[in-house]
Design a protein around this nucleic acid. Structure first.
Lengths: 211, 211
DNA sequence: TGGTGCCTTGACCGCGTGGTCAAGAGCGGT
DNA sequence: ACCGCTCTTGACCACGCGGTCAAGGCACCA
């Protein structure tokens, strides 16, 4: 009924202090959501953990759901940027794939909580569309160099989209099961294995039986 | 305080009719949980969908949580059995892998709802341990033939566990994103791609750079 | 010093939740 | 016809949820 929605969603004029609080809430909530689950974590849990009154939450976010949505959007955006930066300036498409896999897994290892939330959100129809969209872009990002490599004859003919999705499957799953399981362990052997497996899958001969 | 817990958990003496109701509740709940999410689906939703009073639910299950746990356990057991049956009588370990991948993906395609719940449960610490255990067995099942193939020199040296996890990652992700996205589409091209990718990854040369 | 927003408080609200239970209904055996 | 057991009913309960709001503090500028 009012018109103060300049670009999208909420938006409020925040001072530096306000911006800080906002970040703090996002951070704390991300941790709690990932640890106990989104639904089992109440808004009261979040504000208690931050150490503020309940009203503070609704000053910065219109709803609990909006908070999650924001965490997810931000996370997907950050991961994409991280990955893009990692392959910037690399010409060779196969090299790009390797760099993309490595940087992607490093990001996931450094942001386990966000990954947990993304995986959760993918299972709830209310949040799934956003996740699917982000995953589609990620797949497209990876499919582009693959398509180029196939055109150049560096990679056997195959559906780039399927290859990209397979790579995402390997990296996400290994990150979720092995790296998250033991956060203190060294992630590099797992990442190396992922790279090797994925490149093997990409470079696999079209015929199922090995040469 | 009583001793009528013969082997584990609830257990009740059910007639044929009772057994049928129990199954019906499991089936209906699986659908609702997968569609709306576990937490957003209330026990009232479930009994309404079945068309019975609320007490019926608590006659067959001690709690909502126990229902989910049962669905998950049953699902993981069924999938494992399906996969074992598919590779029974096959001697060649690489052939076993291919059969395992195919049968696994077929099962997932036929039980999307259960897979959605498994993926959800993996993100909630209350249910995750059970899921992790099931996944560990699945990985071990797949790692066994891989270890044999490596010992026989049919597959380059690598950590069988990591290979197995990678395969699980590919199959689960492709099933979740592509097959679930369009249930009516033909799954075989996706399955073929998964097989090719995974075998390529397994047979990949130890050195990262292609020959 | 006064004033103008940004920010914070926490009691409060309506509601829907998971779970209970006393009271039967239906059915199979005798 | 009766019993005993499995199964069903639905009103009921305490509780904690997401969300609201009138009120007040606090920082910064004039």
């Amino acid at each position: 009924m009012d018109t103060d929605e300049p670009t999208a969603g909420d938006d409020r004029q925040l001072t530096a202090r306000g911006e800080e609080r906002r970040r703090q809430i996002i951070e704390v909530a991300t941790g709690l959501f990932a640890e106990k689950g989104y639904h089992p974590t109440s808004v009261a849990d979040v504000v208690d953990a931050v150490g503020v009154g309940k009203g503070v939450f609704y000053w910065y976010f219109p709803s609990k759901e909006a908070l999650l949505t924001e965490i997810l959007r931000e996370g997907q955006k950050a991961r994409r940027r991280h990955q893009r930066d990692a392959i910037a300036g690399v010409a060779d498409p196969v090299e790009q794939m390797e760099r993309g896999i490595r940087s992607g897994m490093e990001w996931m290892a450094a942001h386990r909580d966000v990954m947990t939330l993304i995986r959760f959100a993918a299972t709830e129809e209310r949040f799934a569309p956003g996740i699917r969209k982000g995953e589609a872009t990620a797949a497209a990002d990876a499919a582009a160099p693959l398509a180029r490599a196939i055109a150049e004859g560096r990679v056997p003919k195959a559906d780039p989209e399927l290859l990209a999705r397979s790579v995402v499957g390997v990296t996400q799953h290994l990150s979720a099961t092995l790296i998250t399981a033991d956060p203190d362990a060294d992630a590099t052997p797992v990442i190396d294995a992922a790279v090797r497996f994925c490149l093997g899958g990409i470079l696999a001969t079209p015929v199922t039986t090995p040469r």
